[in-house]
Design a protein around this nucleic acid. Structure first.
Lengths: 348, 348
DNA sequence: CTGTTAGCGCATTCAC
DNA sequence: GTGAATGCGCTAACAG
């Protein structure tokens, strides 16, 4: 490996001159500059990333931190990353993906400061040990999704309006005449769960529905499909008054479809199904195709990155927030409530 | 920022002792170790990543290098990355995604050695300036796909058996009685193109077909969909003897479907279509669903990572190669050749 | 088992 | 414009 000293020697100049030629941080005469470049080329010299970093405290690397539990990228992550990379590319940052388990990182040998200038945190949890006052102060962090309540004013984040989406999704069903809507929400420890529950409840209340007792939390022993399947199956058997289901993800919806098929309940005729997110990119795989909200994940990624680089460049410790709009896409798994319209036949 | 010296001072020991407590690279008495840890905790100390790297020459970061032109991750990349991350996770590496344009990286201010221990190179091209003798010798590199011929024995790579897949795909059509098969191949500058052409030609020859003149290279001014659309349209108009099309990607197949629809040519009755790859994850979006090869991209990513870490750990400069199997998945866009079977009716 | 010393390769003062 | 000296924070080799 050739170093800056080698180049300096060959070019007959000092190390600091070579440094300046590459960094362009102070003017160098054209003549000297060319001599240095020539020497560098001959020796195959490139400034050493780590040494430079150690001196400048800047890595020009952005981090994307995912919990190792969900190390599998879904469709949601895919387009989110596309958004992130798009921004990185235009600002000259590289992206470091960190999916190492908390356990691994906490082992003594692996305890190291992070090699990034700032970090995007995905999938925030209610109790998330990636978020601590010490850590937040160390370097810029942008959360994607809603941070735990105690950090809401302490950390910047980019999120959808989950309360609003949940409201709209529920309203979508209510306006089709559904009055008994099952809501299969995200696990309780995910920060989105509360917002979505609130949107759901608000909509029900606004439409005079009192039976929003069907909120069910996901149990971690089962996969989300199994959970949705067993819960739906049980409910449909016990309580046939349920005419619509809202699921947290398209994966969950698979479980609902499976349960419905088993009981010969037709979708959407007998049961409407709609999902909050199209994380898995599976909406088209259903028959009928699954109605869902579109969370605009590419924009989520883009704005998070933009915000992060802004904080880095400005060396700012401001706390900012960006809300990304979401839209509902009807695909065929939701329809008017048969029961309701039969009961109210005389009114039409 | 607190450093190792601060901790050493507070704990009343030397720097190297503190270092060893964290790295565990030499035994430290329990008593001292606890005192150091205590001090570290009080001060909020973590070893500095870049200082450590500068001293050890190890970053424990793997690079994934994509050309910036195709900075958009497709489905193919998604599962490939899942494979890469899976491996990273079990070996404790982090993943640095580098999509910076060649142009950016070549500007003087941005010239830096790479911050990774080794790199995976995607989408190799015939003339690829990421592959040069100097670079290859610097640190371990694993190419995904086929490297340019002159580097085939100089660099490790993981690839599908593209000749074999192309042969099988073509054979698949030939055995259904198709004798005039259009092949919309990848752009000439992509290294896969030659292998696929060879497989196609071999199959045609083995089946006594001489009209394999329909190989068409993609022109860069158009999108692949436009290219496929216009080429197919033109050909179907001029030369209706074409009864089957092989496309490089599922995206391309969209163009074929579009052209067919416009001419009221029915798929698969009048025209069979099959794609080499399901890069876009779109195969199910077609009606009928698109038959295609499955390139096993997750395995591609996993094996590439495994190979790379092997080379890094062994400090080896061996050149290795891994071939990942692919399979053909029939989905409905290919069928027996009507023309052929009508012509040969008497034989059945 | 622990301390001392000497770099790792670069950027950044401060002189000239 | 350029050079010399100093330090970034850590590990490693040697010594005890």
């Amino acid at each position: 490996m050739t170093t800056i000293s080698d180049v300096a020697k060959v070019a007959g100049v000092s190390k600091s001159t070579v440094s300046s030629v590459f960094s362009k941080k102070r003017p160098i005469s054209k003549e000297v500059s060319e001599r240095v470049l020539q020497a560098a080329k001959e020796l195959g010299y490139k400034p050493n990333y780590w040494a430079r970093t150690l001196a400048t405290k800047e890595t020009r690397i952005l981090g994307l931190n995912m919990k190792a539990e969900n190390v599998k990228f879904s469709h949601f992550h895919l387009s989110l990353i596309n958004g992130v990379l798009h921004e990185c590319n235009s600002t000259g940052y590289q992206l470091l993906i960190n999916t190492l388990s908390q356990q691994f990182q906490e082992e003594l040998q692996n305890q190291v400061s992070s090699p990034v200038d700032g970090e995007i945190l995905m999938d925030p949890m209610e109790r998330d040990n990636r978020l601590k006052p010490e850590i937040i102060k160390e370097k810029p962090i942008v959360v994607i999704g809603k941070p735990p309540k105690r950090y809401e004013n302490a950390v910047s984040y980019v999120d959808n309006d989950n309360i609003g989406i949940a409201y709209e999704v529920t309203k979508h069903l209510l306006e089709k005449g559904h009055e008994d809507i099952l809501f299969l929400n995200a696990p309780e420890n995910r920060t989105v769960a509360k917002d979505r529950e609130m949107g759901y409840r608000n909509a029900c209340e606004d439409y005079g529905i009192k039976s929003f007792k069907h909120i069910v939390e996901f149990k971690n022993e089962l996969t989300s499909i199994e959970f949705a399947y067993s819960t739906t199956l049980k409910l449909l058997k016990e309580n046939s008054s349920v005419t619509a289901v809202i699921t947290d993800t398209d994966k969950m919806a698979f479980g609902v479809f499976k349960a419905a098929a088993e009981l010969r309940v037709e979708i959407p005729n007998d049961l409407s199904v709609i999902s909050f997110s199209d994380n898995g990119g599976l909406t088209h795989e259903f028959s009928p195709p699954l109605s869902s909200a579109n969370l605009n994940s590419e924009l989520l990624g883009r704005e998070a990155t933009r915000l992060l680089t802004e904080l880095i460049v400005a060396k700012s410790n401001l706390v900012k927030r960006v809300v990304i709009p979401a839209t509902i896409i009807e695909r065929g798994s939701t329809s008017r409530c048969k029961v309701f319209f039969e009961q109210n036949k005389q009114n039409f």
